[in-house]
């Protein structure tokens, strides 16, 4: 193991309070990421203090998930929160700098929770094979 990675399960309701605790200890926000697991989304909030890695995790339903924004604690979270709302369709409540779905220019809405490539997009053909 290169480094110790602590993964803590939290509830979406307590996320902001837990984050504030870490912020007061001097942690910085590393990243926020969503992962699709079948019909659920796994949310990861990672923090770091002097290379000590802490990760908050909770699950959301795939469609219509709502999370509170942590931009009140870490303003820099706005990029990540816009990203997950654009790519995964998670509703972030109270984002300090909300792009309202215009952070990324995507061909379809919420591409990262779609199942497969839609039929309208042809699969790249093998070259020279007609």
């Amino acid at each position: 193991m290169i480094d110790e990675q602590t993964i803590i399960d939290v509830m979406p309701e307590t996320l902001v309070a837990e984050t504030r605790k870490l912020c007061e200890q001097g942690y910085r926000l590393v990243q926020i990421c969503a992962t699709r697991l079948g019909e659920e989304l796994q949310m990861d909030y990672s923090f770091d203090l002097n290379r000590k890695f802490v990760n908050f995790r909770f699950l959301l339903p795939k469609l219509g998930g709502r999370v509170p924004s942590i931009t009140g604690v870490f303003f820099c979270a706005f990029t990540y929160e816009n990203e997950i709302s654009d790519l995964f369709g998670v509703q972030v409540e109270g984002n300090a700098l909300d792009f309202k779905g215009n952070f990324y220019t995507t061909a379809m809405k919420h591409p990262f929770i779609q199942d497969a490539v839609p039929a309208s997009v042809p699969a790249p053909a093998k070259p020279g094979v007609q």
């Binding site: 590393v30 990243q31 990421c33 992962t35 699709r36 697991l37 990861d44 990672s46 303003f75 820099c76 706005f78 990029t79």
Partner: peptide, 26 residues
């Protein structure tokens, strides 16, 4: 930061890259 999650098949479930410039925008 790369988040890599595999489920035992030859394709990964999730690959997520958080690149330095993304963090340096704020």
């Amino acid at each position: 930061v790369y988040y890599i999650k595999g489920n035992g098949t030859k394709n990964l479930t999730r690959f997520r890259a958080r690149t330095p410039t993304f963090a340096n925008v704020p």
